[in-house]
Simulated assay, not measured.
Amino acid sequence: MAASAAALSSRPYDLTGKRILLTGAAGGIGRATASLLADLGAELVLTDRVAAPDLLAGLAGNGRSHRFIACDVTLPSQIASLCADAGAIDALVLNAGIFPTSQWTDDAWDDDFEAAMTINVRAPAHFARALLPAMKARGSGRIVLLGSVAAHTGGTYAHSPLHYAASKGAVHTMVRWMARRAAPEVLVNGIAPGSTDTAMVATADPSALKAMPVPRFGRPEEIAWPIAFLCSPGASFICGTTIDVNGGAYMR
C-alpha cells in the first residue's frame, strides 16, 4: 500500500486498497458513510446489531469483497469475535450509537444511562483495544470516533438527555486520550455532528434550528464526507482533533 508523495498529493482522498471497518452501518450516517467509502475505493467490513440485506447490494463493488457481520456491541465477546474475523484493518470508523430519550426523572433513566455508556463509550473502546495494536505494528492506520455537538453544548434541545451528552463528552475525551497513545503510526480523530436528518432526531422540532447560521438539519452525507476525509491520506497531519460539523450551531 506504500505510495510516493507525488502520488498521494494527486490523490489525497483515494481509499483504494484500504480495508475499513464501520460500525452502525445500517443507520442513516452509517449508510451514507459506507456508500462514500466504497465509492472512494475502500473494501468494507460493515457491522450493525441486525442484518441489513440491502446494505451491501447498494455499494460500489469493482472486484472488492465487502462484508456485513452482525454484532451486538453491548457484548465484548461479539466485538472480539468480529475483530478477529475482520482481517487486517486500515481504518476503523466507530459510528454506532444510541440516543435514549428518557429524562433523569423517568423510571427508565438508570437503564438508559447504562445503555448509553455501554454502546456510546465502552463499545468503541473495545473495538479500539482489539484493533489498534495491530495497526501500530503495521505502521499505519486511522480511527474515527463519532461524538456530538451535545458534548459541547449539553444538548441542542432543552429536552436533550443527560446520558447522551455525557456519553459523547466521554467520546471526545477518548479521541484525545487514544490519539496520544496511537500516534505517530495511527491517527485518531473524531467528528462531532450537529442535528442530522436521521431516525435519531425524528421527534425533534425543526423550528429550533431557525436561529442557526445554517438553519436546517444536516444531511447524512454531509457527515460522511469529513469521516471519509479523516480516513484518507489527505488527513495525514491531523491527530487528536474532533471536527465540528454542525451548520454553525456551535462555534469555537
Rank of each mutant, 00 (worst) to 15 (best):
55 L>K: 10
161 P>T: 14
23 T>Q: 05
224 A>P: 04
66 H>Q: 13
232 S>L: 07
1 M>R: 14
39 D>H: 12
86 A>V: 13
68 F>V: 05
110 D>V: 14
159 H>M: 07
78 Q>M: 07
144 V>K: 10
4 S>G: 15
139 G>V: 06
214 V>M: 14
15 L>I: 07
53 P>V: 13
53 P>E: 01
49 R>C: 07
195 S>C: 06
99 F>V: 10
245 V>D: 06
194 G>P: 02
155 G>R: 01
220 P>Y: 13
163 H>D: 03
187 L>G: 08
9 S>Q: 14
143 I>M: 00
179 A>G: 03
145 L>H: 03
123 A>H: 00
166 A>W: 03
216 R>T: 08
183 A>Q: 06
63 G>P: 04
165 A>R: 00
96 A>S: 13
156 T>A: 10
56 L>Y: 10
142 R>H: 09
144 V>M: 08
8 L>A: 12
245 V>N: 09
117 M>P: 02
56 L>N: 04
82 L>E: 01
51 A>M: 13
112 D>E: 15
144 V>C: 05
120 N>D: 09
130 A>D: 13
44 L>K: 03
194 G>K: 07
5 A>R: 12
230 L>K: 11
31 R>H: 11
89 I>M: 12
188 V>P: 04
15 L>H: 06
203 T>S: 14
119 I>M: 00
23 T>L: 01
85 D>Q: 15
184 P>A: 11
21 L>A: 11
142 R>T: 12
69 I>D: 01
32 A>Q: 05
160 S>D: 10
23 T>N: 05
7 A>M: 09
173 T>M: 13
191 I>K: 05
114 E>R: 15
118 T>L: 09
233 P>T: 14
189 N>Q: 08
216 R>N: 04
6 A>N: 08
40 L>I: 05
150 A>R: 04
53 P>F: 06
18 K>S: 10
111 D>W: 00
168 K>V: 09
121 V>H: 02
44 L>S: 06
90 D>Y: 13
155 G>Y: 01
172 H>I: 12
250 Y>T: 02
4 S>N: 08
165 A>Q: 02
194 G>L: 07
154 G>S: 09
118 T>N: 03
93 V>W: 13
176 R>P: 00
114 E>I: 10
118 T>R: 08
189 N>P: 04
171 V>H: 04
163 H>P: 00
100 P>C: 09
192 A>P: 02
220 P>D: 13
251 M>K: 11
17 G>D: 11
53 P>R: 06
184 P>M: 11
8 L>Y: 01
157 Y>H: 10
97 G>Y: 10
139 G>D: 08
242 T>Y: 06
56 L>R: 09
26 A>T: 12
177 W>M: 08
196 T>N: 05
26 A>G: 14
160 S>V: 04
196 T>E: 02
150 A>Q: 03
201 V>E: 07
12 P>A: 14
196 T>Y: 03
120 N>Q: 07
74 T>N: 07
243 I>P: 03
37 L>C: 15
82 L>H: 12
172 H>K: 11
134 A>R: 14
98 I>C: 13
157 Y>F: 15
218 G>I: 07
142 R>M: 04
107 D>E: 14
